[in-house]
Design a protein around this nucleic acid. Sequence first.
DNA 1: ACTGTTGGATGATAGATAACATCCTAAGAG
DNA 2: CTCTTAGGATGTTATCTATCATCCAACAGT
Lengths: 194, 194
Amino acid sequence: MRMSREAMAQHHQEIVTAGARLLRERGIEGLSVADLMQAAGLTHGGFYRHFASKDAFVCEATDAAFGGVAGMRNAAGPDSSAGEQLAAFSDFYLSQAHCGEPGIGCPIAAYGAEAARASGEVRARFNAGVEGVVEWIAERLDGPEVQRRRRAAEMLAVMVGAVVAARAVGSAGLTDLILSSARQRTAELAAAVH
Amino acid sequence: MRMSREAMAQHHQEIVTAGARLLRERGIEGLSVADLMQAAGLTHGGFYRHFASKDAFVCEATDAAFGGVAGMRNAAGPDSSAGEQLAAFSDFYLSQAHCGEPGIGCPIAAYGAEAARASGEVRARFNAGVEGVVEWIAERLDGPEVQRRRRAAEMLAVMVGAVVAARAVGSAGLTDLILSSARQRTAELAAAVH
DNA sequence: ACTGTTGGATGATAGATAACATCCTAAGAG
DNA sequence: CTCTTAGGATGTTATCTATCATCCAACAGT
């Protein structure tokens, strides 16, 4: 059943979109090609007309997931001040909502550990993604370039670690403690901005 | 080939020890029962004489892995000051060595994200493990109980996030930036100790 | 006899291919 | 420019092989 060029592109898009979510929900090894294609409304056989391998799909879906992070960064709107943008970003990142819905959240927290043992291509996408986040944060901080990057990296680390730890523990009290202490630190870091 | 009672206990111990390492190296879904038993010097068939299920094994191995973290915390020796103990812990945690050898490192950074979607039993072990680390750090900080726990939670978060992010990116420069900025922050946090 | 180990069996599921049906697209004829 | 047609792109179903967790019967040391 050959489809039109647009239909094909749309299917590709749907696979990547659904995949970017499922990848964050279930991890790389936890997501099967069959489940992925079913989520996209297709059957598993057609997968390899869109991707050379599962790994190639993971690369594309990872890019899409980091693109979602970019959207999350712009939640405060482009007209807001740097401080407001940072606050909106870290507030959402460190929210219970983000912890509860990994599928729409940060790929680093969702499957960064798995990506560390993935192919070089996947790691390259993560490298670019992490670099992008650090740069975006650094642009919104004050001070000399080097210090801004250092503080941006620290901010990313607290956020990622807090969400990973908060998701791993079951107790609500511990989750709150971790998230709120991280929120406090990100607020401090973002305090001195232009 | 029946073995003595001690040999049986020793085998159990070997499975758990080898498993605690492999679990951190490959993740829960990335580790097969057959590989695990082979690493322990046994064949796959006997696994279920030691554990009711793979999940039960993951629980025990997770406890063992957190036990390894406790050993890592005592690297500075019990005679050192609180500040020295904290510094030794965070210095190792945020070292290239720890990033390069997940098998002997922190289970939260290694498979915390996977644990978040694991069974309630596994999550309970993580809860206890994380609580233990936070408590250990908090005991070595100064100030009122509540603030100590907050700072301890923040410290754990930066460390976990830094290692997860550092492992996920390939570039040495980015890894260094992340680890060193986290080291700087843990040093600040540990500065005011008794 | 009991119990832990072995090696193999089992059924499920994984990623990846193949044969086949469909029908879009581009090239050439008029 | 329009119509036709050959060829290839795209999706479906069925299937392959490997591997997974789990279980079991036979063996062997206590």
